[in-house]
Amino acid sequence: MSAAKNINISLQIWRQKNSKEKGKMETYKLNDVSTASSFLEMLDQLNEQLVNERKEPIAFDHDCREGICGMCSLYINGRAHGPDTGITTCQLHMRMFNDGDTIVIEPWRSAAFPVIKDLIVDRTSFDRIQQAGGFVSVNTSGNTIDANATPVPKDDADKAFEAAACIGCGACVATCKNGSAMLFVGAKVSQYALLPQGRVEATARVLNMVRQMDEEGFGNCTNTGACEIECPKGISLENIARMNREYLSASLK
């Protein structure tokens, strides 16, 4: 790995006061950015500069900063989570950029993810989809059967685990040219459909989650595969195919 150096960059960032007002792109210059810093640390540095200039800092989502929580979003230079694959924005580093670069930063764009402020969007549509069926009803009154007491084929367990790795960041929706949420919903449906504990409510789950997805205003999947490429957790398109099968079989019941 090459040694860290400082670079000067130009930033074009979407600024929007609140959900009601119209936003616009604004340009900022930022000097002496260490290539060893993370992308979010670069934004912290910019915000410090803005505060010192008595300007409003840029609002952006972040939490764990280690690629687990799914809070950080950002559409960077035309790609969800920026110019790399298999990462969230907090895992993106400034070594991916060069001195003199102009970096364009936008919020996730989707009718179902309205902008709250600047780069922060409202992703509660995902929560409502989860509430529509993304769970198993378990009796927790002391009669719960240990999950390990129910045998699960290794292949199914692995696939369920891979689907459960979805952190609900919304990169699939952001990157899809149609603004479709089918990779997210496909992962959530698969995670349970593959396990015996999830089969009990499988029919209602897939019907209700897809209905909620449609009501939220997400677009239709056309299988471009962009979501799979940009997903920080590598959720496979297989999950969409599985959801389609689950939905078709549930529709016929």
Partner: peptide
């Protein structure tokens, strides 16, 4: 329907990077 799902377009959209 898909166009309505994204009422505000991206300023920069690099579709060729992933599809």
């Amino acid at each position: 329907k898909n166009r309505n799902a994204r009422p505000v377009a991206y300023v920069k959209f690099d579709g060729a990077a992933n599809s």
